[in-house]
Design a protein around this nucleic acid. Structure first.
Lengths: 234, 234
DNA sequence: GGAATAGTGTCTCTAAGACATTATTTG
DNA sequence: CAAATAATGTCTTAGAGACACTATTCC
């Protein structure tokens, strides 16, 4: 499953199923592992086929990786309930991709059958239509969103949602979108710039948000944040 | 894979392979999923068959669960490198079990082919013999140990290593064994007794450690610790 | 008594949260 | 000019770490 932040909202990539079962339902993109490829390799290949995005694990890393584009890919969980597919026993190894805002989804050339769905529309308070995803993909989506929400607390993974260069304000809006909260800009700025290895000044400035020009940063090498960025309580 | 704490050390359950490939090597216990059972169900069944321990996920919980015995079972990760088994393509869904100290391992009736191995002997500084596990089980073990080490930071999962009733000192020794550090008893006591929902006084006291009698506790309902129990840095 | 463990209290310092204030752009 | 965003600074308070000290058992 692919998550991104668009228009200040956390969004998941969905594709419309063209065949039974669950024909016409929205589902998470996926496919089958080839006999001679690894699991992460297969996830990366399917992702490229369906969205054109390149994300792959670093060699030797079993569970997670970061690619040159900044997109992040990691194994989420494996789902194997005997009746999760009405046709036959299917075991799915779900992978989670965190990507910067992408131009537009294109599902194997068929643009009408793919979309970015705000996760707040799929579950939570804003859910107005009770739309259900195919198979157990609602559960997989919920697990992936929770993984993303908790992982940006104690890692620098939120930068995977940002373009190669970004401002502190843009990074803050990522946190706000993923957590669905409002953060104090001043305390946030002090926190992220004060955490060694989180942000690396790239020298430039930008004014694309209006207002005073903001300093541009790249993701620093740090992967673990200590102390963590605490998610505000309910 | 099953982890426990014995003699102030974090230990993993290993079984000796009686057949090729890797005949005579130590390996993590495991087995095959039956056509009509779930993944966690299969892990729970194999565990009971090989050790007599009962651990199962609570119904509806996909990723983790807690059973009446206090043993905890959760999905760890899935390993599917094409050449991880020299015979054929095998995809393994690893489950992690955290259990209190068990009487003695018995592997399907054959006691000589199962043992509790301190993880410090399998990797890390203390590793004196360079013993290797079968297949990629060394990697799986490392991933499981890291999961346990990080998870007791922000959850009450350390109680899964304890008997149903335990003292603050026993819980502290669990943290010390899993992290391989020494903690201040006074600060630890203040921290765990001050975290609401972590510990529930059971009324009794015990003197099994010598010294002044200690109050006995049960695991409280809390699963998430906020603020977390911080692991001391290197 | 001495050794061991349990439990409470006190001090310091880091860092989070709640603000004020100044700086620099666009409209 | 006003409005928006960026960046820095100040105050308060919660909580972690480093201790001293008392309590209660077994030997």
């Amino acid at each position: 499953m692919v998550l991104t932040v668009r228009d200040h909202e956390l969004c998941a990539l969905l594709v419309k199923r063209g065949e039974a079962p669950f024909k016409g339902y929205w589902a998470l993109p996926g496919g089958f592992v080839r006999p001679d490829e690894g699991l992460a390799e297969a996830a990366s290949r399917e992702l490229a086929e369906e969205t054109g995005l390149r994300a792959q694990t670093a060699p030797g890393q079993v569970l997670a990786g970061q690619n040159p584009f900044g997109a992040h890919l990691e194994q989420l969980a494996t789902y194997g309930h005997p009746q999760r597919d009405p046709r036959m026993r299917v075991v799915s190894v779900a992978y989670l991709v965190l990507a910067p805002d992408l131009p537009s989804p294109r599902a194997g050339g068929d643009a009408s059958s793919a979309r970015w769905a705000p996760v707040s529309e799929l579950f939570g308070e804003d859910r107005n239509d009770g739309e259900l995803l195919a198979f157990d993909h609602g559960q997989i989506l919920a697990d992936g969103v929770e993984r993303a929400r908790s992982k940006i607390e104690y890692s620098s993974l939120a930068t995977a949602f940002c373009p190669p260069e970004f401002t502190v304000g843009e990074l803050r809006r990522v946190y706000e979108a993923v957590w669905g909260v409002v953060l104090d800009p001043r305390n946030f700025h002090r926190k992220v710039t004060g955490t060694p290895g989180f942000l690396l000044p790239s020298g430039g400035t930008t004014t694309r948000q209006g207002g005073r020009p903001a300093q541009l940063f790249k993701a620093g090498g740090a992967t673990v944040l200590n102390p963590p960025m605490l998610r505000p309580e309910a």
